[in-house]
Amino acid sequence: MAKPLLEIKDMYVWFKVFGGILKVLDGVNFIVYPGEKVGLVGEMGCGKTTTMKAIMRILPMPPAVIPRGEILFKGQDILKMKQVKLQHLRKKEISMIFQDPTAALNPVFTIGTQLQDTIRFAEKSGKNTEKEGIRTRAIQVLKEVSLPDPERVLQNYPLQLSGGMRQRVCISMALVSTNELLIADEPGTSLDVTIKDQILRLLKELAEKRNTSIILISHALGAVRGMTDRLYVMYAGSMVEVAKTKELFAHPLHPYSQGLLAATPRLTGGGIGEGIDGRIPEYINPPTGCRFHPRCKQAMPICKDKKPPFFKVGKDHEVACFLFQNHR
């Protein structure tokens, strides 16, 4: 297979807070290939957003620390990048769409100011000399995300737009500063279902047109199913299973993935499954070994002592669970 575009290797992220150290990310391994659409699912609070913020290097540090791990983008470690390089990466290569478009737009500046600044720094020299060109480009980007009346939108403040429009603006800003990888952190979660669907379609369409890789984060499985090629399942700070999306939906292997899928309502009947007892563990004193073992019905003695590595169970299918250590 092709060389990975992005590869996270055994990354740990801790938060030093008043009550102790929150050991949130616990050895994340994650790969995105060029042009690929990768999904990342997991419960709220399992570290999805933290992982993505680490990629963009926008975690607040302190309190966050990254004691171990690397994030390789085209072979270069993002965590070790100098400011100039990092800035280039953010301008041109990777961009992130945030969960809540209302919070992700600065409330006291017009859309025009924010979008045009993004364009100015990402595509132009950063000088203020090409005003007209920048404006034309801004209008063009807004048209690309199907916003009606872009001239007016440029003059509006975020509060004058609807949620869906704000989300589109966020996407347009991300598009400007991205060629390679777009991270979409639960886009449209705060919007109603039909708008959310439109937003997802738009993202997919734009990514395919530009051949951009996408990481789509969600805790709604339905959204990732139609959108992604490959799917990671995350639990309490590390990946527990990865497979082609279809494969994972058809044959989830990790007990957590099985529980997660069973908890999804289906139109085809059967109602909602049982779900999984318990909740995500606290991060100050997380369970030893596999972090899922206290909730796992098939837990074995070894799960308590050792953290399971990924075991290969199929062509693109890997599971971090000792149930599969002797597979093949």
Partner: peptide, 17 residues
Amino acid sequence: NKDYIASERSCGIPERT
């Protein structure tokens, strides 16, 4: 620590701006 600052950073707007 607001999202919009993180978002502006991730769009490559320089720290000074």
